[in-house]
Design a protein around this nucleic acid. Sequence first.
DNA 1: TTAATTACGCTACTTCCGGTAGCGTAATCG
DNA 2: CGATTACGCTACCGGAAGTAGCGTAATTAA
Lengths: 183, 183
Amino acid sequence: MQASTSPAGRPRSDLNADVFAATLRSVHEFGYAGATMDRIAVAAGVAKTTLYRRWPSKGALITACLVDVFGPAPVVSEDREELLTTAIRWGAAKIAEAGVGAAFAGVFTDAVSDPGLREILSTELQAPYLRVLQYALGESEQRVRFVIDVIIGTLLHRMGISGEPMAEDDVEALIAMVLGVFR
Amino acid sequence: MQASTSPAGRPRSDLNADVFAATLRSVHEFGYAGATMDRIAVAAGVAKTTLYRRWPSKGALITACLVDVFGPAPVVSEDREELLTTAIRWGAAKIAEAGVGAAFAGVFTDAVSDPGLREILSTELQAPYLRVLQYALGESEQRVRFVIDVIIGTLLHRMGISGEPMAEDDVEALIAMVLGVFR
DNA sequence: TTAATTACGCTACTTCCGGTAGCGTAATCG
DNA sequence: CGATTACGCTACCGGAAGTAGCGTAATTAA
């Protein structure tokens, strides 16, 4: 392949970080629908057309933000209980600290009526984590999917739709509940 | 008050049922965003302006559909375990049979950036059930809200966003999980 | 230096959708 | 019959996603 033989032409400016920050700020402040592409562009100090040169749609841009926030799945343990505990704490903390609950929930809802976005969301954001969990849990796919839906569903409903952070107690309660499934 | 002294003027046609059916069909088929007011109006054989005469917004219309589907909260028991069990089974069945998962999730997401809709949603759809549960569970408000968020979040994430029905097994697993919280 | 190439900003535009205005007409009550 | 309210219809407004095309900036290859 040898892809990095610096292509001819003007290189892309280093503005992804600014765009991601502006996007998440906008979503946090105005909600998913209220965070318009025009507004994001202005907030990032970038032309709207530039956004569309890099990401095919608003949903794709916000998904890219989420991928940027969460980064690679942290495989912290081979032990099932420890893995689940850490994963849930990690997910809740990430969502809360970055304030991406609304962004998350909005993208999911958009994806219902947008197959292209569903594809992006699935491959870029969900698949890596699913693979890690399914491998580590070593359970039937149905069981794993159920657990994932409980975790994601609960976190999103609380922090995305209700917009409130999740108390320590509640995170621990969620962990205890999920661990109970495997007993 | 004496409200029912038949007012002068042409009475409203009996078309709520048709509109609700057309709305839910549209949302089920095209997703929340894809179910446009024009489409709903055509599907129901009604003028779009008539929709806006009866419901102030798309979100309000869909909320009305949900209220119509769910009806009054069934207070089936004073026993905590029995109440939760029945409530979860009832909710899952209602959502599945009416195919209102996407509608539900869409309204919630819309409400994030629409205070008016949030108000409608809260008073007309959520409040009655919350009151029943909080009374019956007799727990701290935090505990009750946590349980509700787990139940609603899980059901919506599975049946609204993923769009898949929930298997018997999973409903029972959810019930077992929730009951475990109170031990 | 120059030509080719790619990225960016800008303005203007199209399309679609939620929601509104206003008119003519239909149905009901007194 | 008149007053009143509901409905259908057409036309429209405003906003937001996404696109087209131009001039210009930054880089590489010759």
